[in-house]
Amino acid sequence: MDCEVCHERPATLHLTNFINGKKTEVHVCQHCAQEKGYLETDEETYSIHDLLSGLFNFNSTFTNHQESNTQEATHKVCKHCGISYQQFAKIGKFGCGECYREFSEHLNPIFRRVHSGNTVHRGKIPKRQYVNLQKKRLLDDYRKELQRLIEQEKFEEAAEVRDKIKAIDQETVVEDRNKDGEA
């Protein structure tokens, strides 16, 4: 039997895998098993590789997306850590935080697929480093609430929210600093 990944070497490993609740048999060579992470013992990496397998395979994943150009993507290298897009695609891991910016135009389809269509963060914000961003998020939330209250003709409550917005607006603005290594 040939390896079902590379179809070059004989399949020497026959692994049972559990993907999305289904029992799947995988027949691969030692080389591809390592590459795909089938031999890693970490339970998290195990499922992650299940999830990502095929995802970074540009030929199939990216040709349909206008936002990425296969040729260009392949040759792009992150100048901060030296990892190429091709390596990133192969390993499924970024080399540094700057990779997110360097490869940014190619990442939306990947994030969409991994995170059920999501591409933008909506959770916690570093408390000390990003005071302004937190303020911005809070203002956004208050403005949405204000809109809702006005639509519901709850004018008294709306006035309270408007006061809160004013209070935040009047606070002095300090730039978020985030580029230093250690605080």
Binding site: I48, K93, F94, G95, H121, P126, A183
Partner: peptide, 23 residues
Amino acid sequence: EEKINYAFEEKRGYLTSCPTNAG
């Protein structure tokens, strides 16, 4: 975080090595 500057972006949140942990 009082002592560490985290790798963070407004758009992608906390930056992690594996895209499956980002945000």
